[in-house]
Design a protein around this nucleic acid. Structure first.
Lengths: 343, 343
DNA sequence: CTTTAAGACTAAAACGAATTACTAATTCGA
DNA sequence: TCGAATTAGTAATTCGTTTTAGTCTTAAAG
């Protein structure tokens, strides 16, 4: 044979190599591999092709395929800190598993909040022709993403833009606050303190509103002196809890803005020789397994639905008619109650 | 003009579109974009080309480029549970940032330990022609990865194969145990208890060996009764700590297998009315910010170098001469001491 | 015996870049 | 003033697929 028939050495086999070995055309190999029904290929030939494929260890070249089909089978996730934060790794997981079941891969870039990284990350993803983009934030807040984001279907996760002009998936903070408070009320508590975050953010306002709504709905008065604000760490929450519990009419339950603060509250309660939940009930927020499950007694808390947000985001992008972009809907996901033993 | 000169609607512009607008050939556009020095293109023409690029909003198609250059600019990371575990999200971060600085993207798939997912994930990555693969485990242990892994340069992260035939990046458990123990000895402690993990794993043996070496090096006797084993959770560690501290000759320092267990130890110490670190010093392992920084007093601990492992893994893959695979070296990374206030 | 219709394939043209091998017009040196 | 060198660029091929539009047999129908 002449020159061109020798196998091109040291590169993965292509359909041509398979075709040559099977004694058919490359087109036929393609038809066999993709099970194209409109093409009539005899069973015999199919078998020969598959045999050749296995013999050579051929596997499709996704780049070539994507180039031709104009489908990259890829979604992108740009996050500020999500990946590092144990708060939200579940979001990545949810997104990845959903992408996975749609035969897509997830491209993840963490920007550490740096604008320039964000920009180049976005360029990278656009160059790779991602079929959809998620722009995610570590904690629920307002963002101003780069405008190029709109070149491709996009959904915000755990964040939103001021004018709500982009679709977003965010936790229902009000419902979360309501759920936590109502759970305590259901256990018979009437004096429920709330140790809230002090830095203004949607979670602060939302959970407070939920707290007030739950009280109102159950005919309980709202007592502003039962609401304390401090930075969301165990140490400051320790002090806040202490001051609340040293009052004569001490509350019988503590609703903490998050699990870290609940950790501080636990310390304060134990320090005062009180028992959880007999003397004081505690409920947290976030459901950080690491803390909530390790505390004694295990902490009842409200979960931020990170996994669900990641999953939903991908699903929205996947069910999109080709070429269109998502309507700017704001999807509020419920924060479920995770019952353990602290209330 | 005839038919083929009209722009192909509703798809991103290609180099041909740019070329047409700038009045040059596609080749010239390519030369300008890639700054090919061997080609002589006048400054005037370069400017025209760039102007056209900006006018059209052209950006390279990574799939086409990769197909031609046979470089996917992509690395893959297959992990069992790493992504979900707050233990090791830093590994992903380290890998991603290193990949990033090498102009590569990271493809991450979490298998949840399921063999079939692992298999398809691997196929996916091979189809995408990743230039290197990382196979990572949630906790340091022996693995048996699928054989196809060897079709591409690969490095194990936080795990190893029985015959050490694959390169691996793993934490130096012995050094970690030594570091923790030596830190306590340096603070004057002589009776140092060790609350160890009970399920056999490299960390258990390594840290114990480090503990013994440190004692020996400082002329201290090894007292088996000061070593307790239990499951690595706060609750069991609480009990273990309590039993150690209720002895007449109670130890003055507790080395805990990990931070979760240190959390239980804290509870035990506080329950007995003892102070940290004045009455009992505590040192942990893992450096889970979430726990270590929130505990009171903040926990001194030894860090598992997850970020560093991720980074190193990518660097090894990047510095590989084309076509070769990594020598099966086992890279032991040191576990640094993170000083806070508990010793 | 000729036409039609399956049946079983194949040739060739995309997809969007990178790259090699030219061409045409100047400029330079002797 | 002639050939060589330089400058400025282009045509054509390639990467590995998918897909459209055929081609060539053979069998059935009329």
């Amino acid at each position: 044979m002449d020159d061109h028939s020798r196998p091109k050495r040291n590169r993965p086999p292509s359909m041509y190599d398979v075709a040559r070995l099977a004694g058919v055309s490359q087109t036929t190999v393609s038809f066999v591999v993709n099970n194209v029904t409109s093409a009539a290929i005899s069973q015999e030939t199919r078998d020969r092709v598959w045999a050749a494929i296995h013999a050579l260890g051929w596997r499709p070249n996704a780049m070539a395929r994507s180039l031709r089909t104009r489908h990259s089978q890829t979604l992108g996730l740009i996050s500020d800190e999500v990946v590092t934060s144990p708060y939200a790794v579940r979001m990545i997981l949810g997104a990845q598993e959903a992408a996975w079941s749609g035969q897509q891969m997830l491209l993840v870039v963490n920007t550490s909040g740096q604008r320039d990284i964000e920009q180049t990350a976005l360029q990278f993803m656009l160059e790779r022709r991602v079929e959809g983009l998620m722009y995610a934030a570590m904690y629920h807040h307002e963002v101003t993403p780069p405008p190029e984001l709109k070149l491709v279907p996009v959904v915000l996760v755990n964040c939103f833009v001021a004018d709500r002009s982009l679709p977003a998936i965010i936790p229902d903070e009000v419902q979360g606050g309501y759920t936590a408070t109502a759970a305590l009320i259901r256990r018979g508590h009437r004096r429920i303190a709330f140790i809230n975050e002090i830095i203004p953010m949607p979670a602060l306002f939302g959970r407070l509103e939920g707290y007030r709504q739950a009280l109102a709905d159950h005919g309980l008065p709202f007592d502003p002196s039962l609401v304390r604000s401090c930075h969301s760490n165990a140490h400051d929450a320790f002090a806040a809890a202490l001051s609340l519990l040293e009052r004569d009419d001490r509350p019988t339950a503590l609703f903490c803005f998050n699990d870290k603060m609940a950790m501080g509250a636990y310390d304060a309660i134990k320090r005062l020789g009180l028992r959880i939940p007999q003397d004081v009930a505690v409920i947290g927020f976030d459901n950080l397994e690491l803390i909530a499950a390790q505390l004694y007694p295990p902490l009842t808390t409200v979960e931020l639905p990170h996994y669900e947000m990641g999953r939903r985001a991908v699903e929205l992008l996947q069910n999109l008619p080709a070429g269109e972009s998502l309507p700017p809907m704001q999807h509020y996901l419920p924060c479920p109650l995770i019952e353990r033993e602290s209330i």
